[in-house]
């Protein structure tokens, strides 16, 4: 390079050497954490956790998808039951809702009439079961309403040990 350009080059390098680290440091220092809350206002919390007792945890109820099912009860030996799911992080279906069907029904493509709606499939939200479910065994059905398709039916199980 010719001499004037070499001198300009040196000046450019010195200016960049001062400005760029400062600009970079300012940019990094100005980063905001991803906004979030440690706890929601209590008015917005959907279900006060009344199911204190964990009856059991099973990972074998669903064959196709790795879903852990937890059974809760209001108190030891009494009260209503509730189920809670935790699925793999990548598991997502359009508008997935959960049903309880008593007995060991042969479900193919449509939901039978005796399907009882438990609520939306939501990781770490306990869905209460109806009181009459406690007396008999049944299955959990994961149903995608947007796809109008049964995603998976669990193995039949009883809530209470015989």
């Amino acid at each position: 390079m010719i001499r004037p350009l070499r001198q300009r080059h040196r000046r450019v390098v010195i200016v960049l050497g001062v400005i760029l680290p400062i600009a970079f440091a300012v940019g990094i220092a100005a980063r905001k954490p991803v906004p979030g809350m440690t706890s929601l206002p209590k008015e917005l919390v959907a279900s006060p956790q009344t199911f204190a007792v964990t009856e059991w945890e099973r990972t074998d109820l669903f064959a196709k998808t790795p879903i852990q099912v937890r059974l809760f009860r209001e108190s030891v030996g009494g009260g209503r039951f509730a189920v809670e799911f935790s699925a793999a992080k990548d598991f997502v279906k359009p508008d997935l809702i959960v049903y309880w069907i008593a007995g060991n029904p042969n479900i193919t493509e449509t939901l039978p009439d005796n399907a009882r709606l438990l609520g939306a499939f939501n990781s770490s939200v306990a869905l209460p079961l109806s009181p009459d479910a406690a007396s008999a065994s049944g299955v959990l059905v994961l149903y995608s309403l947007a796809d109008q398709k049964i995603v998976e039916v669990s193995k039949p199980f009883a809530l209470q040990k015989p």
Partner: peptide
């Protein structure tokens, strides 16, 4: 190219790194 480099450092710093 030095101007471009400086602009790109800013582009990345105030872009994806945020």
């Amino acid at each position: 190219v030095y101007v471009a480099y400086a602009l790109l450092v800013l582009h990345v710093t105030f872009g994806v790194i945020q």
